[in-house]
């Protein structure tokens, strides 16, 4: 850019937009070039067996047909068993997850907990958050055997990381003046939590719990693939057998349940606030 000093004398006729993020042109080109090189390399690693893909098109078309004209009946027994497992797993794991998350969430809030409790709780959260549900499920299935019980444990464990972290952040963000006012009345720690913290975080805790219920259901459809019970196992079987119309039916059921739960949870959240 030319400096602004010469504007007064001569009318300027050129203008270029100043760069948005990276000011140095050299660095900018290095970054653009690097991105391009990476992209070429990355695309290069993708080996595509085009004849296999071409063969697959027919199967893909059959899947789309199965999705459009799903078959709920012929595998209904398997589907219903999987669905019941998934739903019960979702409910129990969410409830247990919430019950454990609340104390851990409070413990992980810097403004409420002493340092050592804080560190312990944050460590629990970090462990729970850094591993995928599927990985946890693999380990738990190895320990507890196949079936929904391992799934229940997996989802409970994952819920803890999710809810405690958000709850702790919420507690750290509360309006301090309210807590101060309650403290000023001579309230003890429990009274402080009950009167100053709980009213402020309760609506959001309910919202988060409902959201987690939703996530747990979706995840319950996945962990079945590694043997932790639920609708995922049924889905896995039907895809293995190339029964795309049953697979389509299962996926539509999952989508339907997620839609219903999203819709009702938005209503509940409005009603709570």
């Amino acid at each position: 850019m030319t400096s602004a000093a010469n504007t007064a004398s001569l009318p300027r006729r050129h203008w270029k937009r100043p760069p948005l993020l990276i000011k140095s042109p050299l660095l900018r080109w290095i970054i653009y070039g690097g991105a391009l090189v990476y992209l070429v390399l990355a695309v290069g690693t993708v080996e595509v067996n085009w004849s296999r893909v071409y063969e697959g098109l027919e199967r893909g078309w059959r899947f789309i047909q199965g999705f459009l004209v799903p078959d709920f009946t012929s595998r209904w027994r398997d589907i219903s068993v999987g669905l019941v497992e998934s739903l019960t797993m979702t409910v129990t794991s969410t409830v247990v997850g919430i019950l454990i998350s609340v104390p851990i969430g409070i413990g992980a809030a810097r403004n409420l907990a002493p340092a050592w409790i804080y560190l312990v709780c944050r460590a629990i959260i970090a462990v729970s958050r850094s591993f995928q549900e599927v990985i946890i499920a693999i380990l738990l299935v190895a320990m507890f055997g196949f079936g929904p019980f391992a799934g229940f444990l997996t989802l409970s464990f994952a819920t803890i990381g999710f809810l405690s972290k958000l709850l702790a952040e919420d507690i750290e963000d509360i309006d301090e003046t309210q807590a101060e006012a309650i403290r000023a009345t001579g309230a003890g720690w429990w009274q402080l939590v009950n009167y100053a913290i709980q009213p402020q975080v309760m609506p959001r805790l309910i919202g988060l719990s409902l959201y987690r219920l939703d996530i747990n259901f979706r995840e319950s459809a996945v962990i079945g693939i590694v043997g932790a019970g639920g609708i995922g196992a049924t889905l896995n079987t039907s895809i293995d057998r190339y029964e795309y119309d049953s697979a389509g039916a299962i996926m539509l059921i999952i989508i339907g349940i997620v839609m219903v739960s999203e819709y009702s949870s938005s209503h509940i959240r409005k009603w709570v606030q």
């Binding site: 979706r218 459809a221 996945v222 693939i225 995922g232 896995n236 996926m251 999952i254 989508i255 997620v258």
Partner: peptide, 11 residues
Amino acid sequence: RSINSLIWALL
């Protein structure tokens, strides 16, 4: 959103 990437991958 409802269908996890693992299920998409399976398919």
